[in-house]
């Protein structure tokens, strides 16, 4: 990831290369895919078949929400910082609208348990965020803990030793 700096107007600077937001978003989606089977099983145990379907829908909504959020920020950041700010704000409105529309469309379906759906949206969203935050905090505070960091730092250590 590089930043193309615009000296005349820093707000028109832009990101080049892979976006950190997209990396974080994809990382959260991978974690979501890992916890999906146990979550659906728990939903089935508590609320039955309808609960399992609702948990799956809620989890899908959260993961799509994360992906769309990351994609909007990553795409707009390649235009300019100002576009990224606009994308973050309008993305918030668009994503809330999408979630509302989906839930309102399926609310009368027989296989939807609204309590299970609501609980899943909140718990999964916050759970995935705290999980990712824990990883990122450790990576930022202790870069040596980041996967692959050991390989990158080896030559440095060798040069210091020699």
């Amino acid at each position: 990831m590089n930043v193309h700096v615009n000296e005349a107007n820093p707000l028109l600077s832009r990101f080049e290369g892979p976006s950190p937001a997209m990396q974080v978003g994809l990382d959260m989606i991978k974690r979501g895919a890992v916890i999906a089977p146990p979550l659906i099983l728990i939903g089935a145990l508590i609320w039955g078949t309808d609960g399992a379907a609702s948990v799956a829908l809620g989890l899908g909504l959260v993961l799509v929400n994360v992906f769309v959020s990351a994609w909007i920020i990553a795409t707009c950041a390649k235009i300019s910082f100002a576009a990224m700010a606009g994308g973050a704000m309008f993305g918030f409105l668009i994503r809330l609208g999408i979630i509302s529309a989906v839930v309102i469309l399926v609310r009368n379906e027989t296989w939807v348990d609204l309590v299970a759906l609501g609980v899943t949206i909140i718990v999964t969203h916050l759970g995935l965020l705290f999980w990712e935050l824990r990883y990122i905090s450790a990576s930022l505070a202790y870069p040596g803990l980041k996967p692959g960091a050991g390989l990158a730092s080896k030559p440095h250590k060798e040069s210091v030793a020699s």
């Binding site: 937001a21 974080v24 920020i73 918030f92 609980v119 909140i122 969203h125 965020l129 990122i136």
Partner: peptide, 28 residues
């Protein structure tokens, strides 16, 4: 900028959780 964007993305998601809680209260 990379670290700031990472932190910003997580901050947005945490802030958005408040709106999601409001939405779930609405549907309930």
């Amino acid at each position: 900028a990379g670290q700031v964007q990472t932190t910003m993305f997580l901050g947005i998601a945490f802030t958005e959780a408040l709106a999601l809680i409001g939405f779930v209260v609405f549907i309930l």
